[in-house]
Design a protein around this nucleic acid. Sequence first.
DNA 1: GGATTTTCTTGATTTCGGTCAAGGTTTTTA
DNA 2: TAAAAACCTTGACCGAAATCAAGAAAATCC
Lengths: 229, 229
Amino acid sequence: MTPFTPQSISDNLRRLPLFSGIPPQELVPLLPGVREFKVRAHELLFQKGDTLRGIHMLVSGQVKLFMTTPQGTEKLFTMVKPGHAFGEAVVFLDRPCPVSAEATQDSTFLIVAKDALLTMMDRNPAFARQMLASLSMRLHELMSDMETCTLMNSLQRVVSYLSHQLPESEDPACEIRLDTSKQMLASRLNLAPETFSRALHHLAEGGVIEVSGRTIRVLDTQRLKTFQA
Amino acid sequence: MTPFTPQSISDNLRRLPLFSGIPPQELVPLLPGVREFKVRAHELLFQKGDTLRGIHMLVSGQVKLFMTTPQGTEKLFTMVKPGHAFGEAVVFLDRPCPVSAEATQDSTFLIVAKDALLTMMDRNPAFARQMLASLSMRLHELMSDMETCTLMNSLQRVVSYLSHQLPESEDPACEIRLDTSKQMLASRLNLAPETFSRALHHLAEGGVIEVSGRTIRVLDTQRLKTFQA
DNA sequence: GGATTTTCTTGATTTCGGTCAAGGTTTTTA
DNA sequence: TAAAAACCTTGACCGAAATCAAGAAAATCC
């Protein structure tokens, strides 16, 4: 994990949704508290139990947040996409981190130091609101995941996941490109890889989707959403 | 659900953890945006899908947050205790509420209007931090629940729940008073009531606890935490 | 305080999804 | 581009927990 020259930092910061609403000159006092890092795929950013220096913002690449079970297997929580923050909740609570983070692709990310962040919030109420909104969003996503994992059976979970990946368009057919391996997706949906595979097979047999590698062609979005047994 | 005269509101507000760090005079501008309500047990405060006017703060009583499954059964998310807020995330996102709320006892709660809250945050950075911390806390609890529900089997879930209910003291033995019916607890732990009952029975047979109604006597906290099979 | 309803327990049975095993495919690496 | 590794699929089997059923205990209501 290698820190970087501060040159590009300002640019990267400005492009992140969390900071995009803030006038550039107001970001200046934040800069001394920001570090840029580059990591290779499979590098660990931090581990469950670590204390984080600040919030992390993914600029490019992909990072997975996961827990390790007592039996040594991994349970995936989230795939972080570029532009998104992670580790916010930890920073505001001064608690050890509940998850581990590992790059799944070569990635660039920023760490915004806790102090810098707090001063920024004090000076800039709009930014504080933005932080709140971001955390709230996270909370909603988690609720939704909780709902999926506890209220639905395996097939419904897969259908639910696919439905959420559909683009906004009204098109009855479209293509979804899975952004991770199927075993990771399975873990995220709290399924054994075998079960995930069988669910996709089942949907394909039902004529709702076509699977080829990581590309899933949805033939009828309406039927997908209401698919039973 | 009956709104109340503004007399007691100020007192109640001051007693809540979220506002306790704020000097009383700074709470004054907030007051016009606060309403007090009283509800009877079994009354519904709001439903999944509703838009909330502001954050809710429970002053006294007990409120459950739950979802209704497609099959018509209820899945309990949280039991809100006096002093705690709910509905924060919804307010900061302007989204329909993902859960329903129902009083399980006669209760008093406050609604702090969104606008009042935002102005308060703008004027008072310390309060903004407090909100952030509160939301972060919620996020951590949810993560922890997620962990319990997805990584543990039925017995471990019950053990985990009981362990979290233990008082801080070093006493090897102590008593836990369940704050809801066992079927609700089962729902919260994502178990069938029968399975929950059997888990308690199992622990009792193992000599770790004694159950009598809603009172659970833990005989050896250390053994409880490490209880297997 | 007895009747009625709700909640809890216990046993028998079923089922969904996990595990194990083996073969096929794709990707990585040298 | 061949070899190795990782990933995915499919079938057979198993097991944890849900469901079904029925009775016991507790709470609620006239």
